[in-house]
Write a protein that binds this DNA or RNA. Structure first.
Length: 880
RNA sequence: GGGCGCUUAGCUCAGUUGGCUAGAGCAUCUCGUUUACACCGAGAGGGUCGGGGGUUCGAAUCCCUCAGCGCCCACCA
């Protein structure tokens, strides 16, 4: 015996993984004549550690990749990491503060050197941990969002979009984080409910409500809905004088339908510099905009005596001052509103107007299928035209909703870690400014002009992530040749030619708007291709109580690296996909992991049994399907293999897993292995094991490969690189006989259990398949014997048409009358139901023929069973 | 305000275009240590599929409605 008694995953996993990687089993070959299959791995944060979310996506993508390899495809699963600009930048800034310095003191170059050092130290951690999950990724093609080639792609794309007018620079209102001192995109902002005070002030003839009096210094426009009857006497453009915080001001009346007449007094003043809505109103009417709060969150000189105070410091004092002036009308202490915070760091967002770079999503300059369209039009078209399908389907709606509400994407960030905006500015001696945008820095020097200076900002991390599917396929060596255009780079890169569009994008539904939509945006624009044909979205793994795993509740976080040594990676993988629907969140449950640890053990022991049965001196023999059990298991094997592959082709992972689990545990272990103990078919057992290992492999690669390697039936061959084997055809009639045997065994067990008897003899009268399988039945039903007789008394079995009975004396058997009566009642109910259905002419007329036939068969079967039951019942009733 | 999802056994969840007596894992109860496995085997109990209405020969599945839970988006002057 080569297989030890128990499977200890931790003793094998690392070695098995090393064996795979060393062998090149995961290395893609773009020159292969096989069909290509490709997945871009969503690049995790390079400084992160493996979470259950990572474990889930690695499992799903690994199943896809391994399944495709088994189907004989050339597979590229391209791994990588993301530079995660904002969080990494924040970590370094915090470290600097802890050291008593800051980024401005040490300067940009030192800051970047410091950051590079930090990420280099931590990047390996994530890569090692991804391997621990068994990920069959092509590590020879590992990419990083800050690779030189990717940086070139970023600059090329930016330049191309700039020249097409898809990227512009403008003064727009942005979500400003005064703590991290950068702006963040709309979708990185989250809202937190907060109870606040809501003040109503007298403002000239009007009353206005606000929760933010500290922004009101510069307010000189009062806005109301044009149809609001209460203010019909006031005309758009009218002015009036009023006393305000720091003395008298002149205010102008503006009519705009952005105002909700039902809210408060239906009148508001606006602060265009610090509110999205106010900004839009100001834009519509060409109004002045003034900055009130600086970029550190402090009040500017316009606040007069309040200058330099923070928002919270100033608020109460301003209210007091207005109160003293008699302008405070009322205060509502129970006002509930949402405040915007940055999801990274949770700092309160202060809208600010800043000169930023934006992607224009509405300009119709993208060439898609021969037409000039806007980005949003292309994004809608790829779904409408089914160039891309999303699983589960319901996310189509969510996708459309996002795209319909897409606003210009602000792509510049005021942090240092990341791809720097490829724009340079210079001024001449008269102060005239010139902008240059290009892949490489401008080199010209002209008299009368100052030197070029690069834009200090970096790009949103998602800008480079959006290029991921194709930028990672560009040959890094070719990318160094700047004489080539971006299009030439793509066309000359073998990986791009072979693997793009990628086959499928597997990721969490939460980053559909951040990433999936933007990859489609960039890929269609730059390459003219969709980035992927299918999108598969998985759900979140939440804590056992159904709430999010959160750093604020450390006890809620499950660390996969603690689960793996305890239960094995395979158990974790299968536990994460068991019973989980695409796009649905799941709650963590150790029970599922345990169940799969047990499943691995079951598989291991099936292998041990087969190994022991074959014996050490076993030499391969020709496969022959002989017994009814053989035919039955081969039929099951064939059906399950087909069904499991079909499920996997449709990304129905939990369905495929469920079939696999029950085939192996119920059919193979509980029936076929047990039957084999009476009469083993060695070549068939060997074939069955090999086929099972192949079926299990995508789900549980470690245990399956460990068994395969330990047995060493084919020398050095790897299970990971084997392809699907054809299953020889079984005879349906013989397989059916085995189900008869199952009925006999099950009923015999049931009766013995119910009557608390054991070691009973089963008699039968002239039934061939019973004669042939007497030993198997005896063993499985734990009978004393299975004997052929011509006649006799006892308790007849009712679940089979075969004539057989258990040798149980009348007195004991009488106790079974109750069971028989109960079964009769059940059976009569079934028959009544079926008869009613068939007597319904509409049913017979309307239901599909197959369904009606099925019903008739069921009825015939049910009647037959009832006859048996009644006969048996009568026999005892009369002899009693 | 708009949208999406969920509500099925004690618990966690499957149930693919409507069609076997609605399933799984865990838990529970009974029996059992037979040399693959106690991380085991055999057997059992347990659900009027959230409530109500409708469509249909037929509804857990489709439609309407109500209730509860969760999430997303917008707004919050």
């Amino acid at each position: 015996m080569k297989l030890p008694k128990t499977y200890e995953p931790s003793e094998y996993e690392a070695n098995i993984y090393a064996l795979w990687e060393r062998s090149g089993a995961f290395t893609a070959d773009p020159t292969s004549h096989k069909d290509h299959f490709s997945i871009s791995m969503p690049p995790p944060n390079e400084t992160g550690t493996l979470s259950l979310g990572h474990a889930l996506f690695l499992t799903l993508q690994d199943i896809m990749a391994r399944h495709a390899r088994q189907q004989g495809k050339d597979v590229l699963w391209l791994p990588g990491t993301d530079h995660a600009a904002l969080p990494v930048n924040a970590i370094i800034e915090r470290k600097l503060v802890e050291e008593g310095t800051n980024k401005h003191e040490i300067g940009r170059d030192a800051f970047l050197a410091r950051t590079r050092e930090f990420v280099a130290d931590s990047r390996g951690t994530m890569l090692t941990q991804m391997r621990a999950m068994g990920a069959s990724a092509d590590w020879t093609r590992l990419r990083y969002t800050l690779d030189d080639a990717l940086n070139r792609c970023v600059n090329e794309t930016f330049t191309k979009m700039y020249s097409d007018g898809l990227i512009y620079r403008g003064n727009r209102i942005v979500n400003w984080d005064p703590i991290l001192e950068t702006n963040v995109s709309d979708i990185e902002v989250e809202y937190v409910e907060e109870k606040a005070k809501f003040y109503t002030f007298q403002y000239g003839p009007f009353q206005i409500g606000t929760a933010r009096p500290e922004t009101k210094f510069g307010d000189k426009y009062v806005v109301m809905h044009p149809d609001d009857e209460r203010y019909a006497t006031y005309q758009h453009g009218d002015t009036f004088e009023t006393e305000w915080i720091n003395g008298p001001i002149t205010a102008t009346i503006i009519k705009d339908d952005a105002v909700d007449p039902k809210f408060g007094t239906g009148v508001m003043t606006i602060t265009p510099w610090h509110s999205q809505i106010d900004f839009e109103i100001a834009e519509r009417h060409g109004l002045d905009k003034e900055q009130i709060i600086d970029f550190h969150g402090k009040l500017l000189p316009i606040a007069g005596e309040f200058e330099g105070l923070t928002i919270t410091e100033a608020r109460e004092r301003i209210v007091q001052k207005l109160d003293h002036k008699g302008l405070l009308v009322k205060t509502d202490d129970h006002y509930l509103h949402s405040i915007a915070v940055n999801e990274r760091g949770k700092a309160v967002i202060e809208p600010q107007i800043r000169l930023q770079w934006f992607v224009d999503v509405n300009k119709p300059v993208v060439n898609w299928k021969g037409k000039q369209r806007s980005i949003t039009e292309v994004l809608q078209a790829v779904i409408a035209d089914k160039d891309i399908t999303i699983t589960p389907q319901r996310f189509n709606k969510i996708y459309s909703h996002w795209v319909d509400n897409y606003r210009d994407w602000c792509i510049s960030r005021q942090i240092w870690w990341g791809h720097r905006v490829p724009a340079w500015y210079r001024t001449d001696t008269d102060g005239k400014q010139e902008t240059y945008v290009g892949v490489q820095p401008p080199t010209d020097q002209s008299d009368g002009w100052h030197d070029w200076e690069q834009d200090p900002d970096t790009l949103d991390t998602w800008f480079s992530s959006a290029l991921w599917t194709w930028s990672t396929l560009i040959d890094p060596a070719i990318a160094q040749d700047y004489s080539l255009s971006l299009d030439e780079l793509l066309q000359l890169s073998p990986d791009f030619k072979a693997y793009h569009p990628t086959t499928v994008m597997e990721t969490g539904w939460d980053i559909l708007p951040f990433w999936v939509i933007r990859m489609i945006l960039m890929s269609t624009y730059v390459t003219g291709q969709v980035p992927f044909k299918d999108v598969y979205l998985h759900g979140m793994v939440k804590a056992a109580d159904g709430k999010k795993m959160s750093k604020s509740r450390p006890e809620s976080i499950i660390d996969p690296l603690k689960i793996i040594p305890q239960y094995g990676t395979d158990a974790l993988r299968m536990g994460l996909i068991m019973g989980v629907k695409p796009g649905n969140d799941q709650n963590w449950s150790t029970g599922k992991i345990e169940a799969n640890r047990n499943f691995c053990n079951k598989l291991w022991n099936i292998a041990r049994f087969i190994e022991a049965t074959l014996g050490d001196d076993y030499t391969p023999e020709k496969l022959e399907i002989t017994s009814v059990a053989d035919h039955w298991i081969m039929q099951k094997l064939q059906q399950n293999q087909q069904a499991i592959h079909a499920d996997l082709d449709q990304y129905a992972f939990s369905e495929a897993y469920d079939k696999l689990y029950h085939f192996i545990w119920d059919d193979v272990a509980d029936w076929y292995i047990e039957a084999s103990k009476a009469a083993p078919n060695k070549p068939l057992l060997a074939f069955l094991l090999e086929t099972m290992l192949l079926l299990v492999h995508p789900f549980a690669p470690f245990v399956s490969e460990t068994v395969w390697q330990t047995l060493g039936w084919e020398g050095d061959s790897l299970l990971a690189t084997k392809t699907v084997v054809a299953i020889p055809k079984a005879a349906a009639a013989k397989a059916e006989s085995f189900t008869q045997i199952q009925n006999i065994v099950t009923e015999s067990r049931f009766i013995q259990n119910a009557l608390k008897v054991s070691g009973v003899t089963l008699y039968y009268n002239g039934v061939d398949f019973l004669r042939d399988n007497a030993a198997i039945i005896k063993r499985l039903a734990r009978l004393r014997d299975v004997t052929e007789v011509t006649d006799g008394t006892g308790l007849y079995l009712t679940s089979t048409s075969a004539s057989c009975w258990l040798d149980i004396d009348q007195a004991t058997a009488k106790a079974y009358l109750g069971e028989l009566a109960q079964k009769q009642t059940q059976q009569k109910a079934v028959i009544t139901q079926l008869e009613q259905r068939l007597s319904n002419t509409s049913y017979v007329k309307n239901a599909p023929h197959a369904v009606v036939t099925q019903t008739k068969d069921q009825l015939a079967e049910a009647r037959q069973l009832l006859v048996s039951l009644e006969r048996e019942y009568a026999r005892f009733d009369t002899t009693a």
